[in-house]
Every structure is written in C-alpha cells, then in structure tokens.
Design a protein around this nucleic acid. Structure first.
Lengths: 230, 230
DNA sequence: CCGCAACCGAGAGCAGTGCTCTCGGACAAA
DNA sequence: TTTGTCCGAGAGCACTGCTCTCGGTTGCGG
C-alpha cells in the first residue's frame, strides 16, 4: 500500500494530461479533441501518452467522469439543507444551469450524443447520479418534514421505477408513491432536456429571455413534484 | 426555370450520395461517417464528391435537414385530427419515440451535441419545428373545441414566449395564455429530454420498462398542458 | 454542325489523426 | 552492481478531410 515515488510521478503526469485535455475540451469540444495536440501542449511525444491512456476514448471517459463530478459538486454546493424545500429545488436547478452554461463543451460531452459506438455507461452511472441524488434528497426531506401533499399510495412497480431510484428519491415514505417518484424522474430529465434545448439551440425562435424562461420552468417542475409554486 | 438534363443527373447523383451517407449514418453514426467511405460505396473518387458537397459538414447538414423532415413526417402521419385531443397528443408522442428508436444515430445527430463548432441552426429551424407544429396544432384544436380549462389570462411577454411560438402553439385564444404556452414548450422539450435520456443511457438503473415509463410520462405531459389525464 | 466552355471524374498530394512497434536510456529493486 | 521494469522518442501504418491539376465528356450557343 506504499505509494512508491514512481507511482507518485505517474499520477502526477496523469493529472497533467487530464488537465491539458480538459483545457482542450473546453476550447474546441470533444469531437475536435486531439491526443497529439495535448501531447504537443505537454511537450511530449504522442506515443508517450499511450503509456497512461490506452486510447483516446479512455481519456474521454476520464473527462466524462470528472465532468459529472464537477457538475455534481456544483449542485451539492448550491444546496442549503436549512432552506425550505422549494427554495432548495430552485437553487440547485439554477446552479446546474449555471455550470452547464460555463462549461458547454463538457455538458455536451456528458449529455449530448455518446461519442464512440456506445460507450459503456456502467461505471459512469454513480458519478452521473449525483445531481439526481441532490434533487432526491430535497424531495425526501420535504416528505419527512410534511411539506409534501399526501400520495395516493400507488402500488410499487420496480420495473417502472427501480429500487435503486426509490432509494435515491427520498426512500420509503407515505408521501411518496410511484406516481410522485415518476414525476420526480420526469422533472429530472426535463431539467436536462430544457438545458440541452437551450445550449443546443432548439429554443432559437421560441424563447428569447432564457434566464426567465428557465426560472419559470423550474417553478413548474417544483410544482410537478409537489413542492408548491411561487 | 427549365431543368436541363445536366441539372437532372446532378440532382440524381446528389440523391445517391445522400442515400449512401444516410446508410452509413445509420450504421456507424455521425462521428464515424467518412466522406471517403461513401465515395467508395458509390465507386467514385473521394475528390469527385466535393463537386456536390463543399465539405463534410455540408453533407451532415443535408442529413440533418432530411432527418428533421422524416421525423416531422412521422409525427404528422400519426396525428388523426378527428380523434380527441388527448389521444392525438399521446399518439404523436409515441410516434416520435418510435421513430427515434428506429433511427438512433439520426436522432443523436438531430438532438445530440452539435457536431462542428456550432453549426448555424438558422436554416434548420423550420424543419426542426415540424414536431412542435403538430403538437401545437393539437393544443390549438383543443382550445377551439373548448376542451381546455380556462386560462388565467396572463399578460403576453414576447421575450418569454416569442410571437412565432405563439403562432405555432395554437394562435390566440382565450384558453391560451403565456402560462399554458410555457407549459407547452416545457412539454415539448421534456418529450425530447425523456427520449434523449432513454437513448443515451441516462435512465440505466432507474427505469426498466421504458415503454410503460414513456406512456406514463406522455400522460403527465398531456395533463400539464391541460389535456386531462387518463 | 461545330467549337467552345462549363462541367466533371480521377489521381496525386498535403496536413492531420489514432495507434503500434521498436529502440535506447533511466531508475528502482535485489 | 546487476537486473528488470518502466518510460520517452521516433518511425511508420492506415486513415481522414480537403486541394489542385489534368484530361475527357458533354451540353449549349453561334
């Protein structure tokens, strides 16, 4: 378990590579990210880079992991557990949007088209879930504080909403049934659907004031999951 | 205005090129679509292809246009104007999803990350709007047939929902104010947000039965815009 | 009917890419 | 000190988008 000096410098080099790659990603986007270019930026031969990443896709996977982490951290940082649930919801949504607007290419890498021939999303799932975890915790806290309307007590349906998702979305509680959990999943995907449409230009011609539109949308989504509306 | 024989054969060649490109797109995706490969498939030199498309991006733009057209046609074909509004809404949503599942790479090209350094979406807007037009017409018909609840009569705000969007979303009607139009825009983007999450793998671990989940989601969205729920 | 001009296909070539292989040097462990 | 593992560099392969030039065909105007 001792980290030899070789491992240390190796980890350091990996850090430099990912940092340079992240810069390139932010500048030119994932499609134009070139392994040789990051090698040039680091002053090393392109072949040397393969000692640390087996392929370009592995480098991108690393960037995806880091991106999910950064976005999740932004969401967590924006959540003040002492605030009322609806305010927390709006604040987290706004923080997510702000991050995506500051890192559009990272966002496209995370939530745009999968880059290669369907990269295995298995190991990225936990990192990708962090925003969902934050939103789910808000929902659960609201339920436990009695801020949620009574649920109809719909029967559980593990194929519709998996047990894992239930655990994330506040756990078991009388105020939470599959109907509100489904609406929570819908709100989650709608949040990113709205952001994608904005960043990818699908709202051109329909929405001018993106800031106010987004605020109104998150308000609707808060109402959809039972957190009331402003 | 006479189409000379030269123009005719030229248009024919362009058709063959786009057809071959579309096949390639369906197989390997937009990122791996190679100009030289389509030239090979057509048995011509790669340089000859540049007589018809100035660049690879122009070919992709053409495929994007065609994709929007095909998706829009599928949505229109699924809309039976004599059916009740809610049924029409559900049918169109389902048709959109079915098309995207049959053409995942085309969908990724349309609604995934913009491919080059932000292609100008100006000329693609009318083609991209077709699904929105279908959904908007359903909303307008519902309003005119009195199937929509009374609106609060919120003041118009052209920066929030543009005049063009108003024209698409059923036009002016007492049952339609900016609040329901905003919810219609939200439903529109949520439809594609849901599809994107499903196709791009973000629902892995949360939703097993995608078919039933999608039906429930479209039901929620129908309720959101005032078409009632099942 | 013929000549000209526009058009078009093919080939070579350039710069760039991801990736592999081999070689030589440096450094840690025995 | 020797040994073996690791690592960087260079050459090279197959591929890409794209340009340029050359030669042939073909359709149109005189």
């Amino acid at each position: 378990m001792t980290t030899s000096v070789r491992e240390r410098v190796r980890a350091e080099v990996i850090g430099e590579i990912t940092a340079a790659a992240r810069r390139q990603l932010a500048e030119v986007g994932a499609a134009a990210l070139s392994l040789r270019a990051v090698a040039r930026e680091l002053g090393m031969a392109s072949s040397a880079l393969y000692r640390y990443f087996p392929s370009r896709d592995d480098l991108l996977t690393r960037l995806i992991l880091d991106g999910y982490d950064a976005l999740g951290a932004a969401a967590e940082a924006a959540d003040d557990p002492s605030a009322p649930p609806r305010e927390r919801w709006l604040a987290v949504c706004r923080a997510v949007r702000n991050w995506t607007r500051a890192h559009p290419h990272e966002y496209a890498l995370l939530y745009g088209s999968p880059v290669p021939g369907y990269t295995a999303p298995r190991d990225t799932v936990p990192a990708a879930a962090r925003v969902g975890v934050v939103l789910g915790r808000i929902l659960g806290d609201a339920a436990r504080s009695g801020a949620l309307p009574a649920a109809a007590g719909r029967a559980r349906d593990p194929e519709l909403v998996s047990d894992d998702a239930v655990a994330v979305l506040g756990g078991e509680h009388p105020a939470l049934d599959d109907a509100v959990r489904l609406r929570a999943l819908l709100a989650w995907s709608s949040l990113f659907g709205t952001i994608s449409f904005e960043l990818f230009g699908h709202f051109v011609g329909s929405v001018e004031d993106g800031d106010r539109y987004f605020d109104r949308v998150t308000d609707e989504l808060a109402a959809l999951v039972g957190l009331g509306r402003g």
